[in-house]
Design a protein around this nucleic acid. Structure first.
Lengths: 239, 239
DNA sequence: CTTCCCTGTTTTGCATTCATTTTGATGTAA
DNA sequence: TTACATCAAAATGAATGCAAAACAGGGAAG
């Protein structure tokens, strides 16, 4: 079974306190989209669900707010940070810079263990594509890129990279919407693996940046199509 | 008077709650180095100082822990995250990637207001250099680069960039330790400004990355010298 | 003299309580 | 009917209380 995303930063001892446990669970809940974006987060309900009091939950909410996943409105409760299409561009723009660095470093530093894990994930991606299993593909893709980021040997880089991946994860319903992009994406991954195996750092950096750019553009395009299809009842006079 | 660093993310309404106020104040205290790195953070003492109860302070500590400025040891209190020389390399490595993107974008997107502010800061940097005012120079330098990051037009980039600047800020006692680097740094800034005025995006990106690399190397070198000078009483048998 | 263990104190983690603000309903007047 | 004012109910923000864990000191055993 596929592991949920967003669990990479949990170290065993960090779960020693209730607070950290709640942060992890809350993050998963938000990333899995259980609460719709923009929706108010029911403090009392979550307390009952986790079987805890409001104190640790509120602490977790503050942390999630610092991460940007939730938005705190003073005296008016917390809401899941609304989906903002205009935020996608800057995210991918920034992620591109990180992809470049990841490629340059991973080509030099990826050790045997990392290479093995990456090959395995790449293989699994191919199988998911063959099955047309979009859900599995998306999650494996997340894990693959996270592994690559870790293979860069720069933990801070990997951490920042995952933060961006998590932001994008919330918009995933709008990516790989069409099988076409799924297949294209896998072809890009093939080239990424070729560059990685060859330890071609400049090529790997470029491949990753290009892959990032195309993914971002596909996502933005999909959103534009969505916005085009259902602007029902809203300002059609200018159309 | 020079404004303390780390206040860029404070928006007026964010101070509406006690929690946000405490986060800001605590961040300043930590960034200004009032508590030595590695030192335990006295919860009760800070409560008394801020005139608040433990709840909002602990919430703030959790947020600072998520940012990495403090380290929470379960049941054993919070400590200022210790200075770790080995962390400097990865920080500058990552910041380099951001500098490149900032240069490429700022060259294209910096508007008149941003250009004016940058010119002013650059001028003030020259004056600080002439006065050999290292404290002013360091702070102006922080502000200059933050302005440039904002001139990129990518708020997420600017935010991530500042997070890195804050991390580095804690190590500032080991940078520009010698007037030599101060003057060299300013010369690099001269070239940065030339590229910026010319809107030479590739050059600006390269200048910034080079500036970042040299600053990082100078900092690491200074740390090596410090470690060389005062290993008093500790394992001198190998020397 | 060192080491271990025991106990009292302090500190931490979380639950609970209290005060303030918001929200929503109801009633009244224009 | 609509708009506004008033007030009760609910939710939020922060303080306090309490149990458990860590810490510090002293004394006994080796």
């Amino acid at each position: 079974m596929l592991r949920p995303v967003g669990t990479e930063t949990e170290t065993p001892e960090s779960a020693a306190t209730l607070h950290d446990l709640v942060v992890g669970q809350l993050r998963n809940i938000l990333l899995e989209g259980e609460f719709a974006a923009g929706r108010r987060i029911p403090e009392a309900q979550l307390c009952a669900r986790f079987g805890i009091s409001r104190t640790p939950l509120r602490e977790a909410l503050k942390v999630m707010a610092a991460e940007g996943l939730v938005t705190l409105r003073p005296n008016r409760g917390a809401v899941v940070t609304p989906i903002d299409v205009t935020a996608i561009g800057p995210i991918f723009e920034l992620k591109g810079a990180l992809e470049g660095l990841i490629g340059a470093l991973a080509a030099l530093r990826a050790d045997d263990a990392a290479m093995t894990a990456l090959e395995q994930h790449h293989h699994a991606l191919g199988e998911a594509l063959a099955r047309r299993d979009q859900n599995a593909y998306t999650r494996l893709n997340y894990a693959f890129h996270q592994l690559l980021a870790q293979a860069s040997g720069n933990a801070l880089l990997a951490q920042n990279y995952e933060a961006l991946q998590q932001k994008i994860w919330r918009y995933r319903f709008a990516v790989n919407e069409f099988d076409e992009r799924l297949a294209t994406s896998y072809q890009e991954h093939e080239h990424i693996m070729i560059a990685l195996r060859a330890r071609a750092r400049l090529d790997l950096a470029e491949r990753l940046q290009e892959h990032n750019r195309l993914t971002g553009e596909a996502m933005i395009r999909t959103f534009a199509e969505i916005a085009e299809q259902k602007p029902r009842g809203k300002k059609e006079k200018s159309a």
